[in-house]
């Protein structure tokens, strides 16, 4: 199982169990794995952005994804992704309505 598959599986588990802490756990875990292997942990944000794209129309899943914001460093620049705060807020409000 690849790391991204693991994240997707955790998102499914988070939704099915209603336990949003799962996404916090997997975000922290992925940052550790990436950082320990010489990667940039802030790039976890890119994974979250990519995940958010096919989740349009799935507000509950987006809520669970947004529970664990990817902690992008301010200096990393704007990746122009789908998980900028406003987009996630939109998902949250859409789910609540």
């Amino acid at each position: 199982m690849g790391h991204v598959d693991h994240v997707v599986g955790c998102l499914a588990a988070s939704v099915v169990t209603g336990d949003e802490t799962i996404m916090v756990e997997v975000r922290d875990w992925l940052r550790t794995v990436v950082g320990a292997r010489g990667g940039d942990p802030t790039q976890v944000a890119a994974v979250w952005e990519l995940l958010a794209v096919p989740l349009r129309g799935h507000p509950l899943a987006r809520i669970h994804l947004a529970t664990a914001p990817p902690l992008r460093e301010p200096s990393s620049g704007d990746l122009g992704g789908d998980l900028d705060g406003g987009d996630l807020d939109e998902g949250l409000s859409g789910a609540a309505s």
């Binding site: 499914a12 939704v15 799962i22 997997v26």
Partner: peptide, 10 residues
């Protein structure tokens, strides 16, 4: 052990 294995067990 892996949280990602949970969703399909219901």
């Amino acid at each position: 052990s892996l949280t990602s294995s949970l969703a399909g067990q219901k």
